[in-house]
Simulated assay, not measured.
Amino acid sequence: MQDPEREIASVALLLTASDSPDVQKSAFEKYVARDVGFKHPLCYVPPSRDSRETLLGIYQWYRVMSPKIVGKVRSVGKSLNLMLSPCTWCFNLETVYDEGNHTLLLDMVQKFHIRISPFKPAWSRLLVRITLTEISGLYYISFQEDFYHPEDFARLLVPMLAPAILFAQTGASVASNVYASIAQILGFWRPAGKETVLPDTGLYDGNKTD
């Protein structure tokens, strides 16, 4: 890539949503570093010589599980819709580029449907952090990390579990407050109840929240 912020949307589509395994493989060879690393809730590829082939195999299996894809990409400053094939999987994408650290953040919303799954696909969100390496003026993907909230990851596999996970998370929040109140009655981490002067951080003035 010569301009990662502008090109990453198209590159992401080529890597994940190509209509041909040959196009996908060529995209990996063109845009992904040979020693790429990858981290995901279900798998990890440590950076090593020819680890790109291992990551390609993961992406190929990804397409075997969900072979028909539509990609909808919304990048910074513009909208782009690309029709690749009949839809059983699709995603929206927004990018943030930290040029100084050669890092891209992709905020993705996807709908993924496993080929044999009887469940209706549901939208799920993930954050992808991509580290780039520069070689002779061109940028290559050298590390990728995929981050999901538990309920969003559940939507990929068993969508009906997502409400139960959210309910459990809400219950944990309520329980945390109950436990904190009990602990404070026992003398643990109890505020003194008097006004405390905070150090001047320069972020805001007094109690202003705007």
Score class of each variant (00 low, 15 high):
residue 104 L to V: 10
residue 104 L to T: 05
residue 104 L to Q: 04
residue 105 L to Q: 02
residue 107 D to P: 06
residue 107 D to V: 11
residue 108 M to N: 08
residue 109 V to I: 11
residue 110 Q to L: 13
residue 110 Q to G: 14
residue 111 K to R: 13
residue 111 K to M: 13
residue 112 F to Q: 01
residue 114 I to Q: 08
residue 115 R to C: 10
residue 115 R to K: 11
residue 117 S to H: 06
residue 117 S to D: 07
residue 118 P to S: 05
residue 118 P to Q: 04
residue 121 P to A: 08
residue 121 P to Y: 00
residue 126 L to K: 09
residue 128 V to A: 05
residue 128 V to L: 11
residue 129 R to Q: 09
residue 130 I to G: 06
residue 130 I to D: 02
residue 131 T to V: 12
residue 131 T to G: 14
residue 131 T to F: 08
residue 132 L to R: 00
residue 132 L to H: 07
residue 133 T to I: 15
residue 135 I to M: 10
residue 135 I to N: 06
residue 135 I to V: 13
residue 136 S to W: 05
residue 136 S to C: 11
residue 137 G to N: 02
residue 137 G to M: 07
residue 138 L to T: 11
residue 141 I to S: 05
residue 142 S to A: 12
residue 143 F to W: 05
residue 144 Q to A: 14
residue 145 E to D: 06
residue 149 H to N: 07
residue 150 P to K: 01
residue 151 E to V: 10
residue 153 F to R: 02
residue 154 A to C: 03
residue 154 A to Y: 01
residue 156 L to W: 00
residue 157 L to P: 03
residue 157 L to C: 10
residue 158 V to Y: 00
residue 158 V to W: 05
residue 158 V to H: 02
residue 158 V to N: 04
residue 158 V to F: 09
residue 159 P to I: 10
residue 159 P to H: 00
residue 159 P to F: 02
residue 159 P to T: 09
residue 162 A to N: 00
residue 166 L to Y: 00
residue 167 F to C: 13
residue 171 G to T: 07
residue 178 V to L: 14
residue 178 V to D: 04
residue 178 V to N: 06
residue 179 Y to H: 10
residue 180 A to N: 12
residue 182 I to E: 01
residue 182 I to G: 07
residue 183 A to P: 03
residue 183 A to K: 14
residue 183 A to Y: 00
residue 185 I to R: 14
residue 185 I to Y: 06
residue 185 I to M: 08
residue 185 I to T: 12
residue 187 G to I: 04
residue 187 G to W: 02
residue 189 W to S: 15
residue 190 R to K: 13
residue 190 R to P: 00
residue 192 A to P: 03
residue 196 T to L: 12
residue 196 T to P: 00
residue 197 V to Q: 05
residue 197 V to I: 12
